[in-house]
Design a protein around this nucleic acid. Structure first.
Length: 212
DNA sequence: AACCCGGGGAA
DNA sequence: TTCCCAGGGTT
C-alpha cells in the first residue's frame, strides 16, 4: 500500500481544514489544561453537539480545581444532567481534589498520573496529553477505531490498531490530526451508512473495493 | 470479560 | 423503536 502519510494523514488533514468542527468551544487554543480535562470527561460516550450546549456555562462556573472543590457536587450534577452519565459530576469532583492534593492544583503531564484521576482512562489521559500538552500521539475512541479499522483493514480491538494510530500522528500536528479523525469519522466514515460515495479517502481505503 | 451507566438526536 | 455517541468503573 501507499505511504500512509500520503494516502491517509495528508488527505485527512486537508479535509479537516475545510470541514472540521473548528468552532467547538473546548478547541479554543486558549483553553487551560483543566478546562480540556473537564471537556474530555464530559465527552465520554456523549456527542460533541450535546456537550457543546453545556460546556461554556460549566467552565465559566468551574474554571479550576479550586472552584470545583468549593462547589456543591449536586450543583455540578445539575449542570451536566442533560448529558447523562451523571456520575461524571463526582468524577470531576474527585479528580479536582486529587489535583490539589497531589499535583499542586495542576493537570499532570505524566500518563500514569493522569490515569490516577477518577474518571480518566486511557482515552481521556491521551486526549489531555494531545490537546493540552501537544504530544504527537493518538487517542483511540469509537470513531478512531472504526475509521482506522476500515481504512487499514485491521481488527477493531487489536493492539496493533492503537500502535498504528500512534505511528500515524504527524509531528507537531497531533492535536489537529486527532480532531481530523474524530470529525471525519463523525461526518463521513459514520457507524451506519458511511458516505463512501463522496469520501476523499476512498481511493486507498481497504474497505472501499477501490483500494490497491 | 461482562455489565452498567443515560439523556438526546438521528434514522 | 432502535442505534449511537471524544469511555470508564465495578464486579
Amino acid at each position: 500500500m501507499l505511504n500512509p502519510q500520503r494516502s491517509f494523514v495528508r488527505p485527512l488533514l486537508a479535509w479537516h481544514e475545510a470541514n472540521g468542527r473548528h468552532q467547538l468551544p473546548w478547541r479554543d487554543p486558549d483553553r487551560s489544561a483543566f478546562e480540556i480535562l473537564v471537556a474530555e470527561i464530559l465527552l465520554q460516550r456523549t456527542t460533541a453537539a450535546s456537550v457543546a450546549g453545556a460546556y461554556l456555562p460549566v467552565i465559566a462556573r468551574y474554571p479550576s480545581p479550586e472552584a470545583v472543590v468549593a462547589a456543591h457536587p449536586e450543583a455540578i450534577e445539575r449542570r451536566i444532567a442533560p448529558l447523562g452519565l451523571a456520575k461524571r459530576a463526582e468524577f470531576i469532583c474527585r479528580s479536582a481534589e486529587r489535583l490539589l492534593a497531589r499535583h499542586s492544583g495542576d493537570v499532570p503531564h505524566r500518563y500514569e498520573d493522569l490515569l490516577g484521576l477518577h474518571g480518566v482512562g486511557a482515552y481521556t489521559a491521551r486526549s489531555v496529553l494531545i490537546h493540552a500538552f501537544d504530544e504527537d500521539i493518538a487517542a483511540v475512541d469509537t470513531n478512531v477505531r472504526r475509521l482506522i479499522s476500515r481504512f487499514f483493514d485491521v481488527p477493531p480491538d487489536s493492539r496493533a490498531l492503537a500502535r498504528l494510530a500512534d505511528a500515524l500522528a504527524p509531528s507537531q500536528r497531533g492535536s489537529e490530526f486527532q480532531h481530523a479523525m474524530l470529525d471525519f469519522a463523525a461526518d463521513v466514515c459514520t457507524a451506519s451508512t458511511p458516505k463512501c460515495e463522496t469520501c476523499r479517502l476512498m481511493e486507498h481505503c481497504q474497505s472501499s473495493g477501490h483500494a490497491d
